[in-house]
């Protein structure tokens, strides 16, 4: 069984507009890839992603995603300052196709993705 992981660096994520970020995630997940964002999604972006996923369900057998994020509960003002100082404003996010991800093991400081086909 082949499982493809795609890592997106913090810099690469920061270059993308929220719209582009979500489009990229959906494209990768629909290609059966697990995508890891070094600088994760904001709660707003997660919410928008949920909506987009719902709109895609049923198309070409797509059944949804599994997602987990680590840290990143920073408000917009603090996030702006952290970014200005060159840091990461949001924690890591990992997203995979529902069909591939069997289980997510998580606690506030750790994420485990169990994948199988």
């Amino acid at each position: 069984m082949k499982v493809e992981l795609e890592f997106l660096s913090s810099k690469a994520v920061q270059r993308l507009q929220p719209e582009e970020k979500l489009a990229l995630i959906l494209k990768s997940v629909r290609k059966n890839k697990i995508i890891v964002l070094e600088e994760g999604l904001t709660r707003e972006e997660e919410r928008e992603l949920f909506t987009r996923v719902m709109k895609e369900i049923g198309k070409g057998g797509f059944t949804g995603i599994e997602i987990a994020s680590l840290g990143g509960d920073v408000d917009a003002f603090r996030a702006g300052i952290i970014r200005f100082l060159g840091g990461k404003s949001h924690g890591l996010t990992i997203i995979g196709p529902e069909k591939l991800v069997r289980e997510i093991k998580r606690d506030p400081e750790r994420i485990g993705f169990v994948a199988s086909k």
């Binding site: 996923v53 369900i57 049923g58 059944t63 949804g64 995603i65 997602i67 529902e98």
Partner: peptide, 8 residues
């Protein structure tokens, strides 16, 4: 109920 997956 909110979820990220729906499989008929």
């Amino acid at each position: 109920g909110i979820t990220t997956r729906v499989d008929y």
